[in-house]
Design a protein around this nucleic acid. Sequence first.
DNA 1: TACTATAATCGAAAATACTAATTAAGGCTT
DNA 2: AAGCCTTAATTAGTATTTTCGATTATAGTA
Lengths: 304, 304
Amino acid sequence: MSKLPSLKNLSYLLALHQHQNFNRAAQACNVSQSTLSSGIQNLEEQLGCQLIERDHKSFLFTGMGEEVVEQARRILTSTEELLYFAQSQGKIMEGPLRLGCIPTIAPFLVGPLTKQLQVDYPKLQLNIREDTTENLLHLLRNGELDVLVLALPVDLQGNQSYVLGRDPFKLVMHQSMADNLHEPVQYNQLPDNSIFLLEKEHCLTGHAVAACELADSTKINPFTATSLHSLVQMADARLGATFIPQMAIDRGILNGTDLVALQPTGQQASREIGLVYRPTTNRRQTFRRLAEFIAQLLPEPLLK
Amino acid sequence: MSKLPSLKNLSYLLALHQHQNFNRAAQACNVSQSTLSSGIQNLEEQLGCQLIERDHKSFLFTGMGEEVVEQARRILTSTEELLYFAQSQGKIMEGPLRLGCIPTIAPFLVGPLTKQLQVDYPKLQLNIREDTTENLLHLLRNGELDVLVLALPVDLQGNQSYVLGRDPFKLVMHQSMADNLHEPVQYNQLPDNSIFLLEKEHCLTGHAVAACELADSTKINPFTATSLHSLVQMADARLGATFIPQMAIDRGILNGTDLVALQPTGQQASREIGLVYRPTTNRRQTFRRLAEFIAQLLPEPLLK
DNA sequence: TACTATAATCGAAAATACTAATTAAGGCTT
DNA sequence: AAGCCTTAATTAGTATTTTCGATTATAGTA
């Protein structure tokens, strides 16, 4: 059996991939440029294949190089997790935890979550990153985040998940608009272009349309908002109606407005909230505990 | 960030876990006992926790030690895969491939499979291990096998799978027993204790009973067989009837007997055959190709 | 008590990793 | 086109780490 590549050299390769420059990568690794350079050459020799195409001025990762980077990232992430796990002596609710959350959940979950975690698990250092589903999944893969709170269903790309609970959608509109409507609201009672949604980057848009069975796209206004708060303001300005998740309403997003929340059409007019983690993790116990913890903060907990 | 443990030291730990003896483990690693000993101590220091409890005469892995071993195994397997992948230059159908297969599939698949692989991919070195589902899954986890052919459904324990196709069950009995039966056979026409099955270690037993909707357990003879060939012989000796998969029949398991194969009851009286692999693998392309390859050898291919 | 087997320790030797300085080449500015 | 800047590779010397063989310490066994 040939000798295994060293983690050190693999980390050099990752740094080089990230910085695309030997000097900066070397700096990031706290070694000299020559060390990194020879480390990479070493690796190429051990793996018996070319990872980067060099020219005297610059270089380019080969296809094989890119694939090795991918796999190396997973190996290093696993090793870091092992180190962390051992060092924390199996204390599952202590130390840093990097959590990613989508923008249509974060503002309404993070407050109560951090507050309650502080009470129950004061040694847990929660680090939260808010971004789109797609970006969060990328960061999870790269080992830059440990766990995500997403709205399901979504292509988990090989990751695993716990289903935490459901979050009902409400059809929100100005009081004056709601007068002659019956619940659940039939959308054909609404004028064309009267429903406002978020930009399509937000998974909430698709989930709401599907869950609330809004088949008639002529009701949807082509102008999109960038946040739930914008949607609320637009509805309050009597521009039209919109879908708002119960979580946001519970956290008072409609306070100080003249908006009402009506039951929309749809067998199960709600989205599912899930906790997503790498299949290779060794922090399942932590995530399980966290899942139970978050579930109890949702409008309709499903877990446990 | 603390320094990562070295792969070498992790492999020392694995060897020690396997051999439960410093000298033998060191021999297996081709290093001296002192090297291995200090490697382990080094690892404990880096991880900041005790992995083995020592007494001057012997030692014992701690709970943490066992968990670290588990995770280390995964890391080393990934790294070996990376090495193998790079060294084979992405040639997906070359080199060694360790395949596990259950005993109710292997004898009827391996022959045609190796023969045809030899023609299409002569550089692929297929290494086959026959064992129960449970044992095979264990070997897959430990990185001692690369891929499994199993009958589904089964608890994949976090592994991933391709569904290859279906393999119908037939109710096999002596010609003289079949005379006054109509297909699909109603089991209440059969005497008590007249259906013979395999030992319960074989997943075929459960799959056949479920797929063929054999609800009445009084029909099942408590005496169990250890192989399909035994079942066939018992049926040929007019002891009773049994379920035999189509794959086995196609490969001539009934040749030279006076047995007939009847259609059993059941909406879908068949088992599913799947190819199972680790979620962390980087040989998906190989497995995908192999899956397509195996599928075409099944009675009812589903893939592609 | 001598003998065997075990794992830890120690010091020297060997292998490896690292650095600073230098080289070589391409692109940019003047 | 000359000079300068940036880039990655190379070189040679140094520092660090790894490894080994020998030894020690301990416990069980004949």
